[in-house]
Design a protein around this nucleic acid. Sequence first.
DNA 1: CGCGAGCTTGACGTTGTTCAACTAGAGTGG
DNA 2: CCACTCTAGTTGAACAACGTCAAGCTCGCG
Lengths: 231, 231
Amino acid sequence: MAIFSKDFRCNNCNLRMNLFCYLNEEQLEDLNKDRFEVHYNRGEVIFKQGGPLTHIVCLTSGQAKVYIEGQDKKNMILKIVKPTELVGGPGFPVDYRHHFTVSALVESSACLIDIHAFEKIIKTSPEFALEFIKYLNLTTLKLHDKLMNLTHKQMHGRIADALLYLSNEIYANSTFEVHLSRQDVAEMTAMTKESAIRILKELKDDNIIDYDNNRFTILNENALNQISLRG
Amino acid sequence: MAIFSKDFRCNNCNLRMNLFCYLNEEQLEDLNKDRFEVHYNRGEVIFKQGGPLTHIVCLTSGQAKVYIEGQDKKNMILKIVKPTELVGGPGFPVDYRHHFTVSALVESSACLIDIHAFEKIIKTSPEFALEFIKYLNLTTLKLHDKLMNLTHKQMHGRIADALLYLSNEIYANSTFEVHLSRQDVAEMTAMTKESAIRILKELKDDNIIDYDNNRFTILNENALNQISLRG
DNA sequence: CGCGAGCTTGACGTTGTTCAACTAGAGTGG
DNA sequence: CCACTCTAGTTGAACAACGTCAAGCTCGCG
């Protein structure tokens, strides 16, 4: 893969996040020194909740799930990330620890940027800092949405949200094959896997969606939107 | 109040948030030009969800509630703010609109800083920018907590959380008089006011808390912590 | 062929909401 | 001063939503 070639550098990286377009050549060159690529197999942990936040991660290929590990195996999937999304970690610069776990859903690779180099860039590029603040606030807005949806909607609405999220934001297609287990779907929607299965089946019986194993098709997006809205 | 005196300026403001200690005299002087105080009566809206984000607000006296207005009057109180907390608004610099409403729970006053002046400070002071990022990430971490608590705990645990929050973080006292209605308590804990009332009564019957009207006393903090942990 | 992991289904009990009724206190107008 | 109304608080009963538990299923793999 080109990304692993010897003369590959941030400057000519076409996988770099749009956030980094606020940096000049020199800054990118600087950044290039303190980054490296890592390859992950399916299921492998990219970074772990509670572990030290030494690098900012930018997914360059594959797909990963970001989740908080609660007590009694009660996890909560915050989002799915795809290239070339940054996975910062809110521990920066609070306690320099990770507050969620990220694990690869498929074979993936990621660009790891040294946290101090990242901090230096923020300090030297005000435009970058502002853009990073924008990114953080966007994340907060999505969290607000998630909070409202998960606490105020009942299961049908929550499953509808999850399906629309996958279809629209992750796969950009009404048919898609997920790399998530039923348990994962449950952890996205704050319910038990049994409930998730039941609601999915109901939606299938009502001809709103169809699926076979992990291959889903949204047959009636309007109906799904209605269910999402009604809660 | 001294804060309204004519020669009152950011430089000698003892109400200024610790965030601003990263600014020098000149920057504070600059900031001083683009700020002003506003006084609010109980119940008045300081800024409104959906409205334009023209100023960053820093509460200088009183107390306010920050809440998202959902459909069908299903609101969610995100937090209570007290002096001298900043209430930024995640719309900055995303869409320059407010994404939650802030209203005064008691007579309050706030320092309103022009959003462009604030943006300018971020661009001119890297230390301030980094500190602001830290503040944003702390907010995100608290949101994660809230998300986990509200989705994975049942009502007793959620009420316990709310009481501990008020006692420890807002009033710093085991006895406190809230300016919240039962409906507000319900909106903090994502349940109906009937349920909130029932759980509060149960806790009172079990001698874990006591209350008369809006004056609460935590009698057995250990028990409350246990309830919070058990979910 | 047997094993284990993930998936599925049904029965059942618990949790939490809804609805309706009742109470207390604060304001309002005659 | 007394109705009257309005709002917030409270309670109980009925009901729906959701989780738990247990059983059976499928499929890939050794």
